[in-house]
Design a protein around this nucleic acid. Structure first.
Ligand SMILES: [Zn+2]
Length: 283
DNA sequence: CAGGGCGCCTGCTCGC
DNA sequence: TGCGAGCAGGCGCCCT
């Protein structure tokens, strides 16, 4: 479900609702089918540990403890929710946190008391992932810079484009170039940059690549500010939907008039993924 | 070895 | 109302 803005929102909500120092009291695997890299017994070493931090890198959510890092990737359809009620279909993992005045998870869910500290991972398609990382892990060694951080620069992006034989859309979605740009935001970024998704990256000018970098920052920041894009099943932990999908200019709008020139938006398939663009506004 | 194709899963929508 | 086809926010593997 998520590209970077949606993962960032979930990560922030987890951070806001589970204070630093809250203890993990139980980790319960509910189905055998969840794709998990370490065996379930190993993950149990986190039980009893206080959470030191919750962070995000690329599209991974990281729960830090002294004895390791619980990694969560949401795949296409993963969601976390606070819920101490009965399980529903496709719940795969349940984490109990120590109850107490410090853990306010679930607050605002529906007012009332109901402060629960039970966190449930649900994922119908099971493309998501849960794993345990050692403190000195090198899991992210090959990943490119964060798109909203200082290392994602016009100069380095232009170099990556120049060296590539792939399309600009593929380069933009290549996590060794920059992380977090998925299929929705790639189309949105390229529309704002006036560059067709199928253009060879090595035919993108320095000026255009600078505009693309700028558009990545703008589109992702705007999406985060809008609570993400809720298409299909994305929900925040408070069940609130994002509303950035209303501001998608081309994604999912095949045949609709281009917001700039009114020409019908086109859809083509690149690397197996739907790509939306305007033949008049993008060259 | 970079890059494209495909499989992994379930669920939803659309056309007949 | 039922049914099959096509589609879906990611990513890793395999082939060229
Ligand atoms: Zn246009």
């Amino acid at each position: 479900m998520p590209e970077l803005p949606e993962v960032e929102i979930v990560s922030r909500q987890l951070r806001e609702n589970i204070p630093r120092g809250t203890r993990i009291t139980e980790i319960e695997f509910l189905t055998p089918a969840l794709r998990t890299v370490v065996d379930k017994a190993t993950i149990q070493r986190l039980v009893g540990e206080p959470l030191e931090a919750i962070s995000r890198r690329a599209k991974y959510i990281l729960f830090h403890t002294r004895r390791g890092i619980l990694l969560s990737h949401l795949g296409m359809t993963g969601t976390w929710r606070f819920d101490d009620g009965p399980l529903i279909k496709h719940d795969h993992l349940r984490i109990y946190f120590a109850a107490g005045p410090s853990c306010v998870g679930g607050k605002g869910a529906k007012g009332a008391k109901a402060a629960t500290c039970t966190l449930i991972y649900n994922d119908p398609r099971r493309f998501g992932q849960v794993a345990l990382l050692d403190l000195d892990h090198q899991r992210f060694a090959d990943l490119g810079p964060e798109p909203l951080g200082p290392d994602f620069s016009g100069a380095s992006f232009y170099e990556d484009c120049r060296r590539s034989k792939a399309t600009i859309k593929a380069v933009l979605m290549n996590p060794t170039v920059v992380v977090g740009v998925g299929n929705i935001y790639a189309s949105e970024v390229l529309f704002r940059s006036h560059v067709r998704p199928g253009r060879r990256a090595n035919r993108v000018s320095k000026k255009e690549s600078a505009l693309i970098v700028d558009s990545v920052r703008k589109v992702l920041s705007e999406a985060i500010a809008a609570g993400g894009s809720s298409i299909r099943n994305f929900r925040g932990l408070d069940s609130a939907q994002g509303h950035f999908q209303k501001r998608h200019r081309v994604y999912g709008r095949e045949g609709e008039p281009c917001p700039t020139c009114a020409e019908p938006i086109r859809r083509t398939v690149l690397a197996g993924r739907g790509s939306f663009w305007c033949g008049h506004c993008q060259k």
